Computed example of a mutant assay.
Amino acid sequence: MGDQLDHHPTPLGNWLEDLFHKLFYQPDDGICKKAMEEEMSSQLKVCINGQYMPREGFDQAIIQTRCTYNIRVHSSRELLASPDATDKSTASVAHIQTFTLEDKKTGTQRTQTSLTICVIAFSDGKKQLIELMEIMQDH
């Protein structure tokens, strides 16, 4: 076995990476809001670093992060997806991302790495994030 997992991105993993981009990395708040409304379940379950938060708390965390920081992604990679990660089933995808947060007021920067395991469900012909577990660490 090699040092790296030999895993190729799945369509579901690509969808999730696109959702992360809409939520955090692109500058248009309208795109972010639309993604939160359409691509995240109203019953979304979120756990970040072992702390559970309600959907509303997660929405506020996204908005606050966008208001406070410019975010620049350095790397983003799908690590693994469940075997049924197709466009017609409920499945799980794990991603790892490294990014820099730059405080909009002070210019102070810090780099973080985030490992997420997400569950995406299909309902009425569309995908929605229904669960997100994240481990996030500053460098």
Rank of each mutant, 00 (worst) to 15 (best):
D3V: 09
T113P: 01
H21K: 10
K126P: 01
D59I: 06
S114T: 02
D103C: 15
G57W: 07
T65S: 15
V93T: 10
L5Q: 11
Y52A: 01
D29N: 12
K34I: 02
Q137W: 06
I130M: 07
D59G: 00
E37F: 04
H95P: 00
K45W: 05
S82D: 05
Q60M: 13
G30T: 02
H21L: 06
H21T: 12
Q137P: 00
R110G: 08
E37N: 12
I48Q: 09
L44S: 03
G107P: 09
G13M: 11
I62M: 10
N14F: 06
G2A: 14
D29Y: 09
T86C: 08
K104I: 10
E56F: 01
V93M: 11
S82A: 07
T65K: 06
C118N: 13
L19P: 01
R55H: 05
I96M: 13
L80W: 09
I31G: 05
H95N: 13
I96N: 05
E37C: 05
K22E: 09
G107R: 12
K22R: 14
S42M: 05
M136I: 14
Q137G: 06
Q26D: 03
H7M: 07
D29E: 14
Q128C: 05
E17R: 14
E102Q: 15
M40E: 02
D103G: 12
Y52E: 08
I135N: 11
E102T: 15
A81S: 15
L129M: 09
G57Y: 06
V46S: 01
L23S: 00
G107W: 12
L115E: 06
S82P: 01
Q64A: 10
R55P: 00
V119F: 03
G50E: 07
Q4R: 11
V46A: 02
R55C: 02
E102N: 12
K105A: 12
G13E: 13
I62P: 07
F122D: 01
M36H: 01
E38Y: 03
L16P: 00
T111R: 15
D124R: 09
Q112A: 07
R77L: 04
P11N: 08
T10F: 11
T108W: 12
L23A: 00
